[in-house]
Design a binder for these strands. Structure first.
Lengths: 145, 145
DNA sequence: GGTGGGTACTTACCAACAGAAAGCAAGGCC
DNA sequence: GGCCTTGCTTTCTGTTGGTAAGTACCCACC
């Protein structure tokens, strides 16, 4: 992304070696923002949770599970997650082609956290919807006259 | 969003009362997807984490902290989070105008989870970047000849 | 007294992105 | 031969996100 060399980010964030490298979300050019966007993207979240819950999936199975995603977006999402080392892609040179996606150990860790967030929302939807109704629209410009 | 009546979702998900309502992320029309998108949106994540770490903020302070966000997007993001009951907005009719944003108890809970995810990424950036380098581009079309 | 400044937005506009649909490749089946 | 399958990629189009400018309000300054 915006990063040219590892050492540059390392300098900015104070780290030195790769395994000690730490990101800073508040810095606009930090690659951690890109990673965060990949895992929290509209379809990234759902793909990660689906892979965590169901284990290895092939492309079409994942597409069915994550209802509503287009092939383009699923492909794009998985490519991003693969590039970040969260999912492993395996191609079987058969006809018709078969491709399987699996979480890496790294992916397993993020997916767990993403799933925690997703489940919290599912479980608390009632509370959220209640809050929504109490805050119907928004003051129509300015509350003080 | 896509939901017309609460009872519709309740029927689909098997719940009955609002406080027992549970979402289903895999259902395309479930409002939980909308909520998830708000909290995992590019700026939603950063706003929640900033409010969790720093407590009450006024608009311009938040904008400084979440470097790179435009006024429009921050305003829009905060409106969505307010509508979902995650942040509370308080206007002081002074001159110059002052508006303060604070997490609600509900917002505190989500923000905690979001922050956990964000911090995991910050802490593991090194591992992710290492994985990225080992997976340089992507097979240029088809791996089997 | 009129000009400039500060805050929190909203609006207009444009570029980038997401999504629907069609194309592609390679072999099997009828 | 024509059509089916899968996992993409490409094309086209509508929605979204970002930038910049405007708005409203009152005060301080010259």
């Amino acid at each position: 992304m915006a990063m040219r060399k590892r050492s540059e980010t390392a300098r900015r964030t104070g780290g030195r070696a790769q395994d000690a490298l730490r990101g800073d979300l508040y810095a606009p050019q930090c690659p951690s923002r890109g990673v965060l966007e990949h895992v929290t993207s509209r379809w990234g979240v759902l793909a990660l949770v689906a892979l965590l819950e169901g284990g290895t999936h092939r492309f079409s199975a994942l597409r069915r599970k994550v209802a509503g995603v287009s092939e383009k977006m699923l492909s794009q999402t998985l490519q991003a997650l693969e590039a970040d080392g969260f999912v492993q892609r395996e191609v079987f040179p058969e006809v018709p082609p078969r491709v399987e996606y699996t979480l890496t150990p790294l992916g397993h860790e993020v997916a767990g956290r993403v799933k925690g967030l997703a489940e919290w929302i599912e479980a608390n939807l009632g509370r959220i919807l209640t809050a929504r109704e109490q805050r119907p629209v928004r003051a129509p410009r300015r509350e003080a006259s």
